[in-house]
Computed example of a mutant assay.
Amino acid sequence: MTMNEKDKNEMLGAILAEGETYQCKLWGTIMADAKTYAAIGGISLIAGSGAAALGALSNAYCYLGMTENNINFVIVDSVNVSKIKNSISIPKSSITKAEVKGGLLPGRKVVLLHFGKTKMKISLMNNAIGSDIQNQKENVEKFCQAVALI
């Protein structure tokens, strides 16, 4: 099983708020501890199995989509990526600071979203090797440009 276009569109579509559309949809890796997941879950509008249920995961694969008002995350199981572990919708208005940095690897960006004293780190790769994810590079650029304006 690999991250794929069909799952990305279906999973993100299922949590899209009425009247909103996605400006970009992509896949990434959230790098956070249980405390951060719990804090993020506390400000989210959508609760799947609960952010705290993710436990002490350090990395979680996800599909993410940005709308005019929210950043939606569908966190998938690391072994079976067709299984949803959690869905989180974070209002852009709750983000107090956002940073975009180049990663250590070429084609990698690291996005830091700050929520007061809590921060969430997202690793984004320009390519989608081994999957049929479409327009990943373009959507990483769109996401990073939009985040930089927050």
Rank of each mutant, 00 (worst) to 15 (best):
D132A: 09
A17M: 11
E18D: 15
E5H: 11
K137I: 06
A52K: 09
I40G: 07
K85M: 13
G130I: 06
N127Q: 06
S94H: 02
V76R: 05
L64A: 02
L12D: 04
I84G: 02
A52G: 01
E18R: 15
K25D: 08
I84R: 11
V79A: 06
I122G: 01
C62A: 15
E99R: 07
K97D: 10
R108L: 08
K25T: 15
F73Q: 04
F143I: 04
C144M: 01
M66I: 13
I71E: 04
I71A: 07
S49L: 07
L64M: 12
H114V: 07
F143S: 01
I30L: 11
Y63V: 14
L64N: 08
C144Y: 01
K109P: 06
G103I: 03
L16I: 07
F143C: 06
Y63W: 15
W27R: 10
I133P: 05
M66V: 08
I15C: 13
Y63C: 12
I95M: 10
K117C: 03
G102C: 05
N9A: 11
G42N: 13
T36Q: 02
G42F: 11
I46G: 05
V79F: 07
N4H: 12
G42C: 12
G50I: 02
N86R: 10
I122R: 04
L112D: 09
A53R: 13
M3P: 11
V74Q: 07
